[in-house]
Design a protein around this nucleic acid. Structure first.
Length: 320
DNA sequence: TCGTGTCAAGATCTT
DNA sequence: AAGATCTTGACACGA
């Protein structure tokens, strides 16, 4: 069983390389001149995209193939009353480089629209803005040269709104009406409070949506279910599209802050899951969601090295 | 330049 | 009905 590790958004040891810089909405609104507004937006966006390219090159240098881009590449793009500009055609040359890096190195690049993107909300305006956010992410995936099979968008189900089943049905209805270019990209992740694996697996099977298992979320919110009873179905939810499954992992921050993400990945927590996945014995990828980002990935690999049953393949990949 | 408070978002819990 | 809380990296601003 071969497993690759990846990380989210930032490479901590790359200095001055944030892909998530922004201007606050409040500050933006204070600017009077339209040209100045546009200049600011473009300047920040360009830097974020260039930094994303730098991070991708860093990943290639460190043999990391699994990566999630920042959800804030283009500042304020999802605000309704912020100037509309052509962020797709503006930086064609940088996108071309990024496309090439991804393709030549066969990188698995995904995106996770922030948790305010909720298409199952009963509020029409929340759904409307969520669709705009999804459209933006689809555009970015396209500029990065990632088609529907490769550039996936991770979403959560959303709130409870008093009735889980009604919410699930609303999701189904809106999902069925989505633009196919967006619909085919959506994958669903279990959350840490409301929708657990057992809530999502049926709808994922019904609608052919891959289920992204978040091991930490399942630990927080599991309805008494053991993950080993669901793993086969979870992995199978990716098979229809012939995709390698991907899961998320993080460690609880502390006894009192169980849901928050810790700086690092605790080996025992990780190892415990790997042992359960070994029963299925299918290759998959793991997205590390730790505060220390790529450094947590390296530190985890260092821990893994100490254990005989793991065979190290490169800086981010091992076999068990 | 440093540290501290503020910012964005939606849902839900608390007052 | 209004406010606090959750979450996150980074802005904004005063010292």
């Amino acid at each position: 069983m071969i497993i690759r590790l990846g990380y989210v958004a930032m490479a901590i040891d790359l200095k001055k390389c944030s892909p998530s810089k922004t201007i606050t909405y409040k500050t933006y609104k204070k600017i009077k001149d339209e040209e100045v507004k546009l200049y600011k937006l473009k300047k920040v966006a360009k830097q974020n995209i260039i930094n994303t390219k730098r991070i991708l090159l860093y990943n290639v240098a460190h043999n990391i193939q699994v990566y999630r881009i920042s959800s804030k590449l283009i500042p304020l793009v999802t605000h309704d009353d912020v100037l509309d500009w052509d962020y797709v055609n503006e930086f064609k040359d940088i996108y071309r480089d990024i496309k090439r890096i991804i393709k030549e190195n066969n990188l698995r690049v995904s995106a996770h629209p922030d948790h305010y993107t909720i298409i199952s909300s009963p509020k029409e305006d929340v759904v409307k803005s969520s669709l705009q956010i999804l459209d933006y992410h689809k555009n970015i995936m396209e500029t990065f040269g990632l088609d529907c099979d490769h550039g996936k968008l991770v979403l959560h189900m959303g709130g409870k709104y008093g009735d889980k089943n009604k919410t699930l049905n609303r999701f189904k209805e809106i999902f069925s009406k989505l633009n196919p270019d967006i619909k085919k990209r959506i994958i669903l992740e279990n959350d840490d409070k409301i929708y657990g694996v057992s809530d999502l697996i049926n709808i994922c099977e019904d609608l052919s949506i891959p289920l992204v298992l978040d091991v930490h979320h399942h630990w927080c919110n599991n309805n008494g279910d053991n993950i080993e009873d669901y793993l086969q179905r979870i992995f199978d939810s990716w098979s229809k599209e012939k995709l390698k499954p991907k899961i998320h992992i993080s460690s609880p921050k502390s006894e009192t802050k169980k849901r928050a993400h810790a700086e690092e990945i605790e080996f025992d927590f990780f190892n415990d899951f790997i042992k359960k996945a070994k029963i299925i014995d299918k290759d998959f990828d793991i997205m590390i969601e730790a505060k220390n980002k790529n450094l947590a990935l390296f530190n985890l690999m260092n821990e893994i090295k100490k254990h005989k049953e793991y065979k190290i393949i490169n800086e981010s990949t091992f076999e068990i």
